[in-house]
């Protein structure tokens, strides 16, 4: 791993740590309040704040996970550097698309 990838992985981890806690707090709040799906969607639809929060979360998770997967593939699989890089990048792109789709579903 290079210093550039190291920096990106740590940055995204630092960004996600409080976001995961906030996400858990939101789940806890929604379940304790007995919010229905309709009630949740009423809060999230058209909300720039929720789109930004979960959009940033998805981007950070995609970068963080793909760097981590690249390390695992480099160390534990017979793939060469280039092959593991391509596979990990594809995985990151997939996470980004699926995550973005999920965010769009609740904010639009």
């Amino acid at each position: 791993m290079t210093v550039r990838l190291y920096l990106w992985q740590r940055l995204t981890a630092a960004l996600m740590a409080p976001m995961v806690l906030a996400h858990l707090a939101i789940i806890f709040y929604a379940s304790r309040q007995g919010l229905t799906a309709a009630a949740m969607l009423a809060r999230t639809r058209g909300s720039f704040g929720w789109a930004l929060f979960y959009g940033v979360f998805v981007v950070a998770a995609s970068i963080h996970a793909s760097i981590g997967l690249n390390n695992v593939l480099c160390e534990w699989s017979p793939l060469k550097e280039r092959g593991s890089g391509v596979l990990a990048s594809a995985f990151g792109a997939l996470l980004f698309l699926l995550g973005l789709r999920a965010v769009m579903a609740v904010v639009s």
Binding site: T2, V3, R4, L5, Y6, L7
Partner: peptide, 16 residues
């Protein structure tokens, strides 16, 4: 070393 190389990278003294 991780700290020092990170500082060097952020200040442009080494490339990534």
């Amino acid at each position: 070393l991780k700290r020092k190389t990170l500082e060097a990278y952020l200040t442009g003294r080494i490339a990534g």
